[in-house]
Amino acid sequence: MTAPEPSPGAGSGSTGPSGKGNYPPPNVPPVRQTPPPSMHVSGEPTTTEAKPPTRWPLSIVVFLLFWFLFGAIAMYYSSQVTTRWRYGDVAGAKQASKSALIVNLIGIGAGLLFWILVIATGS
């Protein structure tokens, strides 16, 4: 019994999974992990503006007392404030803070309206 003959190019390490061509492609640049240029090493943006408020306490109150769906959405936006601020996206952090406030106010309004209707109907 004889051993099977290897196919051409097998074991050379330079062929791809199909046995054709170079693997990996020769013109692919390496991936480098570098922080965005607007960040210090500490992770704080290079701006002199104050960080916008995160609205966490209000989001938690809305979640627990008024309308949990709006509170959860507001908590998401509240978490985005710090994340965007750390990456140097000052405008995005301000927008996330504003969105958290708007969603919280809508949640308070909807929650109050709901509880007023529940109390008024006596259910």
Rank of each mutant, 00 (worst) to 15 (best):
P25V: 03
L113Y: 14
L58E: 11
D89F: 03
M75G: 06
S18C: 04
L105C: 13
V90K: 02
F66G: 11
Q80T: 05
K51N: 03
P6L: 10
W56V: 13
V28H: 01
I102G: 04
A74L: 05
G122L: 14
P35S: 10
G107D: 15
F63K: 09
G11D: 13
M39N: 02
N22I: 10
G16S: 14
W115T: 08
Q80Y: 03
P8H: 06
R86S: 11
E5Q: 12
P26E: 14
L69T: 13
T15Q: 07
T2F: 12
W67L: 10
T2E: 14
A93S: 06
Y77G: 02
A50Y: 06
T2A: 14
Y77W: 15
V31L: 07
M39A: 07
S14R: 05
W115C: 00
T54L: 07
P8Q: 09
P45Q: 08
F68E: 07
G13K: 01
G13M: 01
L58N: 08
P29V: 06
L117I: 13
W115V: 04
T121Q: 10
G21H: 02
G107T: 12
A91V: 10
R86W: 01
S59A: 15
A72P: 02
R86V: 00
G71T: 07
G92V: 02
I60T: 13
I119T: 15
R86P: 00
L117A: 15
A93W: 03
E44C: 08
G21N: 05
T46V: 01
V61G: 10
A74V: 07
I73E: 02
V31K: 02
P30C: 00
G92T: 02
P53N: 14
E49K: 11
I116G: 06
L64P: 01
